[in-house]
C-alpha cells in the first residue's frame, strides 16, 4: 500500500514523536509513505474562521499535489483530516470551485477531486484490516486499560466525514482491542479537548480538557490515546493546567495512536519518542503484563 504522507505541522515540529511512531508503524505494516515537501499547513480550522475560501484553496492545492501523483492522502491529525475532507466537500459547490480555480489555475495547479483523505486510524481499520494488524502483534498490551479519545474533527460533521458515527464511534476501541489492550468506554471520548480556544480563554479550554481526562480516569483508564496531535497538546502538554481547573491531580499518560500500536508491534519506547511526553508514560507501559521481559528483549 502506497499513500501520500501528510504529517501536518505539529508532527513535524513540537509533536515530532507522532511522526516517528507513524513511520515506525507504517514500516512494520508495509505501508509505503511518500513524502511531499511541498504540502502546506491545512489551516488548522483557524484560517477557515478568518477566510473560508482561502482555506479551501490552500487545501485544494494539497489535494492536487497528491492527485498529480495518483495517491490517496494519509493524515495523522484529526484537524488536518477534517480540513482536507471539508475542502473536498466545499469544492463540490460550483461557486467555491470557480473562486478557487481562479487562484490555482494561473499557477498551473488543477484540482479534480479524486484524492481521498484517510486518517491512519481509518487506514488501519479499513485498508490494512484488524486481522492483519493483530497478526503482527508481538507484545499484546494485556493488562493495559486505554481510553480512546477521538476528539472532534476525525468524526464530525459526520455527514461530510462519512465513515463513523459522530457520537458513538467504535473504530478506535476495535483497534485497541486488536493490539491486546482493554478499551475503556467513557462519555468524554467523543467530546472536545478544548484546544481550539486554548488561545481565546485558556482556563475554559483547560477545564474542558480536564473533564475528559478525569472521565477517562474515573472509568479505569491507565492511559488515554488520541488520533490528534492538537488533542495531545491539550491533554498531555497542558495537563498541568487541566489539573488546576478540575482541582485534582490527574497524572494520566496520553499516547498518540501509532505509539499504542507500535508498542504492541514491538517498538521500543525510544523508537516511539515516549520520553518526549510531559506526563511520563512509564507507569502505563509497566502495566502491560510481561512488560519487563518484553522491554529487555527489545533492548537486546
Amino acid at each position: 500500500m502506497k499513500l501520500a504522507y501528510y504529517p501536518g505541522c505539529v508532527a513535524q515540529e513540537s509533536g515530532k514523536e507522532l511522526d516517528l511512531a507513524t513511520r515506525w508503524v507504517c514500516r512494520a505494516l508495509g505501508i509505503e509513505l511518500v513524502p511531499f515537501p511541498n504540502f502546506s499547513c491545512c489551516g488548522s480550522g483557524f484560517v477557515d474562521e478568518a477566510n473560508e475560501v482561502l482555506n479551501v484553496a490552500i487545501n485544494a492545492r494539497n489535494l492536487a499535489i497528491a492527485e498529480r501523483a495518483g495517491l490517496d492522502l494519509l493524515t495523522i491529525c484529526s484537524t488536518c483530516t477534517g480540513m482536507l475532507t471539508l475542502a473536498n466537500h466545499r469544492l463540490a459547490d460550483p461557486t467555491v470551485k470557480a473562486r478557487v480555480d481562479g487562484a490555482l489555475k494561473p499557477l498551473g495547479i488543477e484540482y479534480r477531486g479524486t484524492t481521498k483523505v484517510k486518517h491512519l486510524l481509518r487506514v488501519l481499520v479499513e485498508d490494512v484490516g484488524l486481522t492483519a494488524v493483530k497478526a503482527k502483534v508481538v507484545r499484546p498490551l494485556d493488562g493495559l486499560q486505554v481510553g480512546a479519545f477521538y476528539g472532534c474533527h476525525l468524526l464530525r460533521p459526520s455527514d461530510e466525514m462519512g465513515w463513523e458515527s459522530g457520537e458513538e464511534p467504535h473504530a478506535f476501541e476495535d483497534l485497541l482491542a486488536a493490539v491486546g489492550a482493554t478499551p475503556v468506554y467513557y462519555r468524554g471520548r467523543v467530546m472536545c479537548c478544548g484546544f481550539p480556544i486554548q488561545f481565546v480563554k485558556g482556563d475554559t479550554a483547560s477545564r474542558i480538557a480536564g473533564r475528559q481526562i478525569l472521565d477517562a480516569k474515573q472509568h479505569g483508564a491507565d492511559a488515554m490515546a488520541t488520533p490528534c496531535p492538537l488533542c495531545h497538546i491539550s491533554l498531555d502538554a497542558y495537563q498541568n493546567r487541566a489539573e488546576k481547573q478540575v482541582g485534582q491531580r490527574l497524572d494520566l499518560p496520553v499516547f498518540h495512536l501509532p505509539q499504542v500500536v507500535g508498542l504492541a508491534l514491538g517498538a521500543t519506547p525510544e523508537e516511539l519518542g515516549l520520553a518526549r511526553h510531559l506526563v511520563p508514560t512509564g507507569p502505563a507501559v509497566a502495566k502491560i503484563r510481561g512488560a519487563s521481559s518484553a522491554r529487555s528483549t527489545a533492548s537486546r
Partner: peptide, 8 residues
C-alpha cells in the same frame, strides 16, 4: 469565539 467548533 468560545465556540470549540466540535460540531456536537
Amino acid at each position: 469565539w468560545l465556540c470549540l467548533r466540535c460540531h456536537l
